[in-house]
Amino acid sequence: MPNVSKNILAVDDEPKIQEVVSALLESKGFRVFTAESGQKALEIFRVENISLVILDLMLPDISGEEVCREIRKKSRVPILMLTAKSEENDLLYGLGIGADDYIIKPFSLKELYARIEAILRRTQNDLVPLNVRNSFGGGDLVVDFEQNFFQKTGQPVSLTPNEIKILSALIKYPGKVFTREELITIALGSEFEGYDRAIDSHVKNLRQKIEDDPKKPVYILTVHGIGYKFNGK
């Protein structure tokens, strides 16, 4: 449940959006800090104990992507992107550099708050640092979400956009067990209308590409009766 100990930083250069978002969150018991520019957002972030950042990508000084990148250098605080960009590559890039979720403008306050609640539930005990480039198994598996580069035993691997989203979500929270429904929300978005078993198909394809033996995986593990988790060392 939200409470006054939770501080949220809302970054947007549109006063009306700042006003309605602040009113919503304050009514739910959050303390809200607002910034109309990227530099102001980073200044606030440096001195306040922020629990979640709502970050518009189109800012008047430095971009939201750059703000996200700077925050990720020192913190794993959850970031929800606000974007008018609907192109998949832009969204994938934002997720790849460390954003936890995104919502496309215009959005309803009900949807925004549902996303915020879901992110805070997932991340309330998550203190794992996030690196843009990760290496596992002594270099056996290399993933670089900034460059969209993936390598297995020294050879490039081609992943689909949905496979990238799922792998990104799993790697961000190593050891955490995700239900199929959670992976759909995190990786495929709440607008996904398929069956939850579609995740099984994506995971099967991922294993074919990144595991030595897909039937005996060492990275993406099945937790029977629940879902999946990432085991990366």
Rank of each mutant, 00 (worst) to 15 (best):
D140F: 03
P78D: 02
A99Y: 09
G98Y: 03
I116M: 05
I71E: 03
L127Q: 04
I119P: 07
D126V: 09
I103L: 11
I50S: 03
G94W: 06
E70V: 15
T123Q: 11
E111F: 07
L130F: 05
Q147V: 04
S86M: 15
I54H: 01
G38P: 01
D144C: 09
S86E: 05
V132A: 02
L141K: 10
N89C: 06
E66W: 02
L130P: 01
S135P: 06
R76S: 12
L59T: 14
I104A: 06
L112Q: 07
V32E: 14
D56P: 10
I104V: 15
E146D: 12
Y113R: 09
R133K: 15
A99R: 03
A118D: 05
A41V: 06
L55E: 05
A118R: 10
D144I: 11
D140V: 13
V143C: 11
L95P: 04
E36V: 14
L127A: 08
F30L: 08
A118M: 07
R31F: 08
F33K: 14
G94S: 10
L55V: 10
L82A: 03
I71A: 11
V47E: 01
E88Q: 14
L141R: 02
G98E: 09
I103Q: 07
L109V: 13
G138C: 11
I71W: 01
K73L: 13
M58F: 07
G138S: 10
G139L: 08
G29D: 08
I119S: 02
I97R: 08
G98F: 11
S63D: 05
R121F: 04
K40I: 15
K85A: 14
K73A: 05
G96N: 06
A118P: 00
V143R: 02
S75K: 14
N125K: 11
E88D: 14
C68L: 06
P129G: 03
E87Y: 06
